[in-house]
Structures are given as C-alpha cells and as structure tokens.
Simulated assay, not measured.
Amino acid sequence: MYRGILQDLLSVTVFQESGNHQVVFMQLDLASLKSVRNFAESFLKSEPRLDFSSTMQDGLGMAFGVNHLRLQRCVPSRIINVAALLHRFGNIDFPLLASKKDLVSGQSTWHNFQAYCSSKLCNVLFTRELANRLEGSAVSCYSLHPGQCLRSRGKARSCSLYILIVPFAKLLFLDPEGGSQTTLHCALQEGIEPLSGRYFSNCALQQVGAKGRDDALAKKLWEVSERLSGL
C-alpha cells in the first residue's frame, strides 16, 4: 500500500516539475543487483526503447547487459559512462576482487580514494570491452571525464565555511551547466560513432591511461564482473 502511495506522490511531483504526464516511475536501487534485475525485467516488459546515460555504480553494468538487445532494436543508440580523470590512478586486484568482492581491502580515507580511482578505471575498461562486443551493431559507447564540478552545499557543511570557499571554488570548478557539456557532446555530437569505446574530456577525444587501453584487462574484468553479478 505504502509503495503505491509513494509512486502516486512521485508521479504528481514529477508532473508538477516537468508538466509531462508520460513520465513513468520505476524503482531502482543501484546498490542491489536484485533491484537492478527487477528494474530491467519491468522495463523490458513495458518500454519499447531505452535512452540511458548515467554514472557507473554497482550493478549498473548488469543493467546495460540486460538491456543490450533493446538498445540494438532502436539503433542508432549510444551508451555513455561518466568516468573521471582519476582512473589513471586506479588498479584492479583480481585476487582481492574474487575474495572480498571489493576493489580495496579496507575502509580508511585512503582506501576510499583508491576504490574511487579503481572504480573509474573499471568504467573506462567496461566501455572499451562493451564497444568491442557491440562492434557492427550501430550501438556506440563512450566514457568521459566531466570536469570538476561545484556542487550545491550539502547539509553537513557549515554555512560559514561554504560562504568562504565558494568564491575560490568558482575559479577552479565548473558549474553544473559546464560540467554537463562533455556528456552532452558524447550523446549528441554527429560523426563520432567510429570513436566508440574511446574516452572524452572537454568535449574532445582524450587518451586514457595505459591500463585503460588494455583490451586483455578489459575482457578479464568483464568476465569477472559477469561471475560476480551471477550472469
């Protein structure tokens, strides 16, 4: 009952914000592979096509895999994964991944930083391998670095500190509009289909780190990810 009420409230809110009666609410928790599978099954039953651009979190790769054929039905299609420049500092320890199902062995601040960098390397490698598997299908894939973006103040930050740092941050960081430009470029720019699997930054093709160009590493990560996802 409560889920139905929540869906109704969300539908009303979305309509008020967008003015569109055709917005469909589907529940998806990217931290749960069960939720991802349920979402994919519901989507495939109800929707004729998929237009999807998002960050690559736990389980998201599986969603792309499940919807793989649906993307091919509505070609030309594009898949865009938001990675980061920090992928260059990433590493994939496959024995650790097999034993702990994680990219790092601890939960310290340094481990969290390592996990972030490594996850972004996974984004780049996933895009590369997916492009190889979709070659000739008219579905193209791109990974990108959006730039460092200035986000709105979180609840945990003090108001006084926020006021002090914002003037300096605006000199160093992009606003949300600026931070979206490379994503929009990959989604909309004509003629970049031959660059499927490649990496973009500042609306231009960029070279990834050496590990991000390793096709054997990309293929192994894909296969391990399939096993970990139960596919």
Rank of each mutant, 00 (worst) to 15 (best):
V124P: 00
T182E: 02
S77K: 02
W222R: 03
L60K: 14
L188A: 08
A40P: 01
A63C: 14
N20D: 15
L195G: 01
N81I: 13
A98V: 04
L9Q: 14
L33M: 08
A131Y: 00
S77I: 03
S152N: 14
A204H: 11
M26D: 07
Q148D: 09
Q72W: 03
L172K: 09
Q114W: 05
I192D: 01
G209P: 00
A218Y: 01
M56H: 14
L103D: 02
A169Y: 10
S54V: 11
V139N: 03
L33N: 06
V12T: 12
E193M: 06
Y162V: 02
A204F: 05
L130F: 05
I80N: 00
S225L: 04
M1D: 08
S105K: 11
K120P: 02
R49F: 12
P167M: 07
V139E: 02
E17S: 11
S229N: 13
A131C: 07
G191H: 05
S108R: 08
L172V: 08
N91M: 08
S54W: 06
Q22S: 14
M26S: 05
L30P: 01
S18L: 15
A204K: 14
A187Y: 02
K45Q: 15
V139A: 05
R3N: 10
E223H: 08
K211T: 01
K155L: 15
E41L: 10
S201E: 13
N112C: 13
I80G: 00
G61P: 00
K220L: 13
Q57S: 14
P76Q: 10
L71Q: 07
R153G: 05
A169K: 13
L121T: 01
D93G: 02
H68E: 11
N123I: 04
G230M: 06
L130P: 01
D51E: 10
A131S: 12
F25A: 07
S229A: 15
S160M: 11
N132E: 13
C141K: 00
N123C: 12
L103I: 06
P76D: 08
L144A: 04
Y162W: 15
M56R: 07
L97W: 03
V14Q: 04
S32V: 04
S229V: 02
G4H: 09
N202A: 09
P76A: 08
R157Y: 12
N67I: 11
E135I: 03
S53V: 15
V124S: 01
C203P: 00
P95H: 05
Y2T: 11
L6T: 13
S54F: 08
C203Y: 03
